[in-house]
Nucleic acid binder design. Structure first.
Length: 1001
RNA sequence: GCUCGGGUGGUGGAACUGGUAGACACGCAGGACUUAAAAUCCUGUGCCCGUCAAAGGCGUGCGGGUUCGAUUCCCGCCCCGAGUACCA
């Protein structure tokens, strides 16, 4: 039989499903290997050809590992809570669960026909109560934990309570809110429950607090920082504003240092690690207190006078060594001391500046980065190291949210301070001997200090240590590490998410009982916020804990379920634990994770955080969840275009015609009855800029092409006068274009109203233009895997996606080359068959050449797969099949091995041939990978390239048994060399055995 | 601005630690088979010069360097993509 891919693929997909071929064994004899894909959000549009790229790669790897004797876990599921289903629900009233269910069915059908080796028995869906029961459960563990800095791990909140009862707050070193109480054990015990709970909330790893959030009014929800791009929502592009709200937060900052350190222990792409490092944003520096000179509480607020907030301004700096160069202080306009510091004379100025700064949006502030602005408060501070009196300013280049919201300005070393000082005529003091500060700040760390009191003459390292020691001694500063990363907001004012397992009593949050889990999402009449602005869950009638207490009305953010889902796959049906101890001990962590880099600072950071927490409380074993990670590149769209010729009609007898506008009315109702004319890509430029060509085309249209139509209207065609207007570029569906050639029949079917359109081209073929764009419906460049599978089969699609280029590289999708891969598979099939398609395989002993071909590919594929270079192994398969075809090799001893090594790439065709070869059906997936024997690759001779002065001239076959000198003599004595040597004797001869001979003349 | 990728034929890409640049495939051109089409097969295909051929010259973004030899290493620059941004 000919290669009947459709039947073969269907047959084996059913076989795998029926026999649960890819279910990992429970016995633990084999080593485990866990291959994970980032599970998809099931969107309504279904899969396009870019989605499976990573899945195909991970599937090849999973199948390869099975052949290599590993017990492979390779699961799949759905991240099925999300905004699109909810938006659709708001528009149509349909429950998001129904939409989601339908979308999942589509995804499943599409995934199934690609032939993945997933163990579907372990499927998870984040929106299913069986699953989110455990997401809620983990939330409860976080609520019941605090971070003990001394132990450097999370601990049970009960332990903290016990400490409070015995020792009060003394001796606690926790990651917590800024304003915690100090109390003795007795004072603690005297507190009522409400006060105790209020205090404990400041320590819990998930906690409520008033936070400034990114509020998106159009979406009716709060967004995480990584969901906001340039002041607009990433999804939908709606404006986002800053708003204060009570919000659940996750104390991820407690793990900042461990998240940073952990990066050095995992095998991830360097750019991705770098993104996480930047996001965490560690800076090592110092806090320094500046006393305010003559602080006198200038505002009239009595309470502040009685209970002054502070007489000092604390700043954070990473260059404490430059402290002697401090010539002024700058506070963020929002800084709490600004009002008190402002003198009556400066009040109007400061007020105006603050108002102006407030008005500026995030976006403007960014665009404005270069302009210097600020205002003097009228107050002064004292530099602790030299007693200098310096001015205190406010400016919006200092951010309230970072460090202490105040900086010591060192204009000689910091460019922003430098510009500010120049602009407002403030002093600039050089502090390092080699500093060059005529035109800009010089942040050098080289050289020795000057103008710097007790550190004069020291180096950077010495000075930093000396200054910190001195400040600590004076009690006016200390070393301090600062992080850019903020605690993560953990609430969305949306319906389609996990309910938070919390109810409120007297305004304080309490966890519901564990046995009441899952807290199921209630039904609501509408998926919109209430009239009073409450989240949609407030609409649920009678939705109260134990019938009385109000539940939390916000739901968890999109990243909640995905922050731990890989553990659920280990034991997907357990209803007493999120995964059994046994399963976690065996599978431990993910060995290979494949997905897109867009999750760098979202999912991948939160997952690491939850994993570390789960480890701290003893539920999991690994410190890091994903040992090795690969980012597959994005598949971009490749759009095709046709070029419509823009013409106008003029009366037949008009010779000259310049003012087309005047005649628009005349031809308007006529022109649309005339067929559209499209010109082929290669004539576009010519018709624009070659007036002779244009005239010829015009004549052609008038006298031949549209002769009859034009006679009817007594008009003639005139091509638009301006070259840039002569054609309009129009997207055409890439699916009716092959190798950039337009299929006319398909075109008329696609656009029936254009059945009489005309095409002008050079060689009868209409060549389309192309451009790389995002893949999207509106650009008609979406390629659907279903269509390709119908036409070429899944095996071809799988191999072609890999053949496209390196996995990690982004690339445009182009179906042009797919024929080559299809031809390859047919050629492979033909190796096993005679001309009449009878299956014929011989039992003869293979020849040396045949074995060489085989072992070359065994080795090459092994190497390629291990370094995820799938594109090169596809080429190697082609080479091997080409060689074996030339050798007319149909020997079982060769072909059976070839079937095994090709099977991860093209599993269906290989299963079929495996059975035709007489093997038990379904055993291919666990067959042993053939053993590479280097002996078959040993050569007696090598065709040395002989180069003269580094330029290759000829090739000579030389026995590899020759040593260097023998080889050199052989080359120099060879007749073909005489022409090049021309009687001269070479200055030098370099012989690299088995590689090259280079002669220097 | 900073950080990280990347620039190789008409196209996608290959060349693993410095050793024959352009593997493999697409496309294109020519040919075979066929009534025809599809399928299949064969030949050629980096550019320039050359009637075929031979021979030669130029070629991995640009300019320099190290080396017997550089797509690969070093220095300087240009361009494209991604991330990030007044982080003190």
């Amino acid at each position: 039989m000919d290669y009947q891919f459709a039947a073969i693929e269907k047959k084996w997909q059913r076989f795998w499903a029926d026999h649960q071929t890819f279910k990992p064994e429970d016995s633990t004899a084999k080593p485990k290997y866990y291959v994970l894909d980032m599970f998809p959000y099931p969107s309504g549009a279904g899969l396009h050809v870019g989605h499976p790229l990573g899945y195909i790669a991970s599937d090849i790897f999973a199948r390869y590992k099975r052949l290599k004797g590993f017990n492979v876990l390779h699961p799949m599921g759905y991240d099925s809570f999300g905004l699109p289903a909810e938006q659709y629900a708001i528009q149509t009233g349909q429950h998001p669960a129904i939409t989601t269910e339908a979308n999942i069915a589509t995804y499943r059908r599409q995934l199934d026909q690609i032939g993945f080796s997933f163990d579907w028995g372990r499927e998870v869906r984040t929106s299913s109560p069986d699953f989110y029961k455990w997401t809620q459960w983990i939330f409860m563990q976080l609520f019941n934990s605090w971070y003990n800095k001394d132990a450097d791990k999370a601990e049970a909140i009960d332990k903290l309570v016990k400490h409070f009862e015995q020792h009060g707050s003394a001796g606690i070193n926790a990651v917590c809110d800024e304003e915690v109480l100090t109390f003795t054990a007795d004072e603690w015990k005297a507190l009522d429950d409400r006060a105790k709970q209020t205090e404990l909330l400041k320590y819990r790893l998930t906690y409520l607090r008033e936070s400034t959030v990114n509020w998106c009014a159009a979406l009716g929800t709060v967004l995480a920082n990584d969901e906001v791009k340039d002041g607009f929502s990433e999804r939908g592009g709606f404006p986002v504003e800053q708003k204060k709200m009570m919000q659940w937060s996750m104390r991820i900052t407690a793990y900042a240092e461990r998240l940073l350190q952990g990066l050095d222990t995992i095998d991830w792409p360097e750019p991705l690690k770098e993104m996480q490092r930047n996001w965490i944003g560690k800076s090592v520096g110092a806090l320094v207190k500046f006393r305010i000179s003559d602080f006198q509480f200038r505002n009239s607020d009595k309470s502040e006078i009685e209970n002054p907030k502070s007489e000092i301004i604390e700043v954070f700096t990473t260059r404490v060594d430059t402290i002697f160069g401090t010539t002024f202080l700058v506070l963020a306009p929002e800084h709490e001391l600004v009002t008190s510091l402002t003198t009556p004379e400066q009040k109007a100025n400061i007020k105006a500046y603050i108002a102006q700064a407030k008005k500026k949006s995030e976006l403007e502030r960014m665009a404005d980065a270069k302009t210097v602005s600020g205002a003097f408060t009228g107050s002064y501070a004292i530099n602790p190291v030299n007693g200098e009196k310096i001015q205190i300013w406010i400016a919006d280049y200092v951010l309230a949210g970072y460090g202490t919201g105040a900086v010591m300005a060192v204009p000689s070393g910091d460019q922003r301070d430098y510009l500010f000082a120049k602009h407002y005529n403030l002093p600039i003091i050089p502090i390092i001997d080699i500093q060059k500060i005529e035109t800009e700040a010089d942040p050098t760390k080289e050289g020795r200090y000057i103008n710097s009191g007790f550190i004069n003459g020291l180096t950077y390292k010495e000075a930093t240590v000396a200054v910190i020691a001195k400040l600590e001694e004076m009690g006016t500063g200390k070393a301090k590490v600062n992080f850019r990363m903020r605690d993560a907001i953990f609430g969305r004012q949306r319906y389609w998410g996990e309910p938070v397992p919390v109810y409120f009593k007297e305004g304080l949050p309490y966890l519901i009982d564990e046995k009441d889990l899952p807290l199921v999402l209630p039904e609501v009449d509408k998926y919109l916020p209430t009239e009073s602005g409450e989240p949609p869950l407030a609409r649920a009638s009678n939705w109260r804990y134990k019938g009385t207490e109000a539940y939390e009305h916000s739901t968890m953010p999109g990243w909640a379920g995905s922050s731990w889902y890989w553990y659920r796959y280990m034991d997907a049906h357990n209803d007493s634990e999120f995964a059994s101890k046994k399963a976690i001990e065996y599978w431990k962590d993910v060995d290979l994770y494949i997905g897109g880099s867009e999750h760098a600072t979202g999912h991948l950071l939160y997952s690491r955080f939850w994993n570390k927490f789960l480890k701290d409380i003893g539920l999991v074993i690994a410190e890091e969840p994903f040992k090795k990670l690969i980012n597959q590149g994005h598949i971009q769209g490749r759009s095709n275009f046709v070029y419509r010729l823009n013409y106008t009609l003029i009366p037949k007898n008009a010779d000259k015609f310049e003012k087309i506008e005047d005649e628009v009315n005349w031809h308007d109702d006529v022109i649309f009855k005339l067929p559209l004319i499209f010109i082929s890509f290669e004539v576009v430029e010519r018709i624009k800029y070659n007036s002779q060509y244009r005239t010829d085309t015009e004549n052609f249209i008038n006298n031949e092409y549209l002769k009859d139509e034009l006679n009817k209207y007594e008009g003639k065609v005139l091509l638009t006068l301006k070259p840039e207007n002569i054609v309009s570029k129009i997207h055409v569906d890439v699916n009716i274009v092959e190798n950039d050639v337009l299929d006319f029949t398909a075109f008329t079917k696609w656009r029936p109203e254009l059945h009489n359109a005309g095409f002008i081209s050079d060689g009868g073929k209409y060549i389309c233009g192309w451009e790389i764009e995002k893949m999207s419906k509106s650009k008609f460049n979406v390629v659907n895997p279903d269509d390709l599978i119908v036409r070429y089969g899944a095996d071809t699609l799988r191999m072609y996606e890999m053949f496209l280029g390196p996995l990690e590289q982004s690339k445009p999708w182009n179906t042009n080359g797919i024929e080559g891969v299809f031809k390859f598979l047919r050629k492979f099939w033909r190796l096993f068959h005679d001309d009449a398609w009878n299956f014929i395989v011989s039992g003869e002993e293979p020849t040396k050449v045949e074995l060489k071909s085989l072992h070359k590919i065994i080795h090459k594929v092994e190497e390629d797969v291990e370094r995820f270079s799938f594109n090169t192994s596809v080429s190697s398969f082609m080479i091997a099949v080409n060689e074996l075809t030339d050798l007319k090799c149909n020997k079982r001893a060769v072909l059976q091995n070839l079937v095994i090594i090709l099977s991860p790439y093209a599993p269906h065709i290989c299963e079929e041939l495996w059975v035709l070869l007489g093997n038990e059906p379904g055993t291919l997936s666990l067959a042993p990978y053939p053993k590479f024997n280097p002996a078959y690759l040993v050569e007696d001779e090598f065709a040395y390239p002989i180069s003269i002065n580094g330029k290759t001239k000829i090739n000579l076959n030389i026995p590899l048994s020759f040593d260097l000198k023998e080889t050199e003599n052989f080359v120099l004595a060879h007749a073909d060399m005489q022409r090049y040597l021309d009687g001269k004797s070479p200055k030098k001869v370099i012989v690299v055995k088995g590689r090259i001979v280079n002669i220097v003349l």
